[in-house]
Design a protein around this nucleic acid. Structure first.
Length: 572
DNA sequence: ACTGATGCGTC
DNA sequence: GTCGGAC
DNA sequence: GTCCGACGACGCATCAGT
């Protein structure tokens, strides 16, 4: 049977982008999916529609290579490219327009038979599989020749899949619904299968091949990762207690990396939050898991870096271990890690997803020694909760988790069963020294802001990076400590854009350097040592709390204050 | 053998 | 990871 | 309540260029 044209999928996506109603989107996608010919076509289509393809296999092609390829095809330089990009803020749309202008793309495309969905997915897969010496050149050659044979519309969605920005408001959540509708399955069954299988494309394939009934058999099993359960943010402990009807289980929220440890007979595998395998990076955790009781299990936890005395180290430290595959042995002794387990979802042949948390915790305690469990208490009033929260902060945590005692383990879902309560953000008053035009729906606005502290002296070398250049232009009176795009409403961003344009000093690419006049109150979770900013510090999770029109730039916080806060944290 | 650019995955 | 906004 | 899109800093791996 002939495959379905990729062009049809592109037209669906165009329609999805124009359709605001979620139900209508689901209906459109479902109708499309149910028309497809084969399991593999459903799989490919699902991936290409929601941009799962670029996540499923790593292409190692991004903005720069795309620009190179496009320049080779159409002769447009970076300037022309940026000019066109500035019109829409969308890479895929930019490619479409440039090809249309060039005409060459169109005419070439007419020579060829229209590619099918399967062929397009195949090309992406082919690009992903290239590695080794000369890989980038090879990837570029394929990209170029393929862009040439595509129509502008096809090239638009090919590009979107390449860079992983589909931007039609139709993501995983709605695709689950669409698959359910297309193949007469219940959304819960599809969701459940997705949690266990990890890839929606694969779920679609199974649905087409074996029908809705086959989804029932999907459940957690060792050595196959499942999506980890997630938590929803909550502001206060009081809120958490109320949500959980006056009784909640509190746990340390450690600042590390999520791990899922599987044991099957003697084999151990460790998976990350996004289900990539990190077993090789954490040999000491593997060794430890071998000593746990139980033939088969799947446990969930957080791995953190610790110092020689066992104190929890900052997040950056654990990242030096987490995905390392070169020099693991050397790093092993330099940066020891420690595991804190908080859940178990499978034990000796039995899935535990539906069992209440309290029961799972009891089983976990039988599998792993106490010292490897995340500290947990039951709190039934605010005093108990607050005491535990303080204790958690003293131990170097970001805050606590509050979990409903009766809750099941819902893989991949974020809900009120698990709440995370972080400590209050720290606050600084900083100056906006430059701003960058946004992407997607924010492309017309200066939506991303360079934040700077007053300089007490220092700096003044030769500018090497854009932040350096900004600082130099301001006579090194300010030092950039981070960037943020968060915290303002669209209306505020729009208004701020106008103000900033009025303060413009110089434009570099999509960045506008401005007179340092606007002071903003910035909330953040942490100050980290920065290899990127020449002042040596950077804010983590910065967001604007409010614009401080009552403050002059001279009244902003100083870099010295930043340093003080950073060192206080280390002692804390 | 080393460095810088680029991409990806962690939070 | 956080945030605002749309459904 | 749920989903989506817009983007932050950082560390590691890989590849290209020298």
């Amino acid at each position: 049977m002939a495959g379905t044209a990729f062009e049809e999928l592109c037209m669906l996506c165009e329609t999805l982008a124009k359709t605001p109603s979620r139900n209508a989107k689901i209906e459109l996608a479902a109708r499309f999916l149910s028309k497809l010919n084969s399991p593999s076509e459903v799989s490919d289509a699902v991936r290409l529609i929601i941009g799962e393809a670029s996540k499923d296999f790593t292409l190692n092609l991004g903005y720069s290579h795309l620009l190179k390829a496009l320049t080779n095809i159409t002769g447009v330089g970076e300037k022309g490219f940026l000019a066109e990009f500035g019109e829409t803020g969308d890479l895929g749309e930019t490619v479409r327009r440039l090809l249309e202008k060039g005409r060459r793309g169109v005419q070439q495309a007419l020579v060829f038979r229209r590619p099918t969905i399967g062929e397009v997915a195949g090309v992406l897969r082919e690009i992903a599989e290239i590695s080794g010496k000369g890989a980038m050149a090879k990837k570029l050659r394929i990209l170029e020749s393929y862009l040439k044979r595509l129509t502008p519309l096809e090239a638009k969605y090919f590009t979107k899949n390449l860079v992983g920005e589909i931007r039609h408001g139709f993501g995983e959540g709605l695709m689950e619904e669409a698959l359910a509708s297309a193949f007469q399955a219940s959304p819960e069954a599809v969701r459940n299968a997705h949690m266990v299988v990890g890839s929606l494309g694969r779920v679609g394939e199974i649905l087409k091949e074996q029908g809705a009934g086959s989804l029932q058999s999907f459940t957690v099993k060792p050595l196959t990762p499942i999506r980890p359960m997630l938590a929803e943010p909550a502001q206060t402990l009081r809120e958490a207690l109320e949500e959980h009807h006056g009784r909640t289980l509190l746990e340390y929220k450690l600042d590390g990396a999520r791990v899922q440890i599987h044991k099957h007979h003697s084999q151990i595998k460790i998976f990350s939050r996004r289900l990539t395998e990190v077993t090789k990076s954490l040999p000491e955790i593997v060794e430890l898991a071998e000593t746990f009781r139980g033939e088969d299990f799947v446990v969930d936890g957080e791995v953190v870096a610790v110092d020689q005395s066992g104190r929890v180290m900052p997040f950056q430290e654990v990242m030096k271990r987490y995905r390392r595959i070169i020099g693991v042995e050397e790093a092993l002794s330099r940066i020891p890690t420690r595991i804190f387990l908080f859940d178990i979802v499978y034990l000796n042949g039995e899935p535990l997803l539906k069992k209440p948390l309290t029961e799972r915790r009891q089983l976990l305690e039988k599998v792993a020694p106490y010292e490897f469990l995340t500290p947990q208490v039951e709190a039934s009033n605010l005093e108990e909760a607050e005491a535990f929260f303080e204790e958690a902060l003293k131990a170097g945590c970001e805050g606590v988790m509050a979990k409903r005692p009766s809750s099941p383990y819902s893989p991949g879902r974020r809900g009120k069963h698990w709440l995370k309560i972080k400590r209050q953000p720290e606050v600084l008053d900083l100056v906006i020294v430059a701003a960058q035009y946004g992407y997607g729906y924010r492309y017309r606005w200066l939506s991303d802001y360079y934040l700077a502290a007053l300089n007490g002296g220092g700096g003044g070398g030769r500018p090497e990076t854009l932040p350096d250049y900004i600082e130099a232009l301001h006579g090194w009176r300010f030092r950039v400590v981070g960037k943020t795009f968060k915290g303002l409403t669209n209306a505020e961003i729009e208004a701020l854009t106008e103000r900033l344009k009025g303060l413009a000093l110089e434009t570099v690419g999509r960045t506008v350097i401005v007179r340092p006049e606007i002071v903003v109150e910035v909330g953040f979770s942490n100050i980290q040592p920065s290899p990127q900013y020449s002042c040596g510090y950077a804010l983590r999770f910065a967001r604007i709390l409010r614009i401080r029109d009552d403050k002059k730039p001279e009244e902003a916080d100083s870099l010295d204050r930043v340093k003080q806060l950073a060192s206080k944290k280390l002692e804390g």
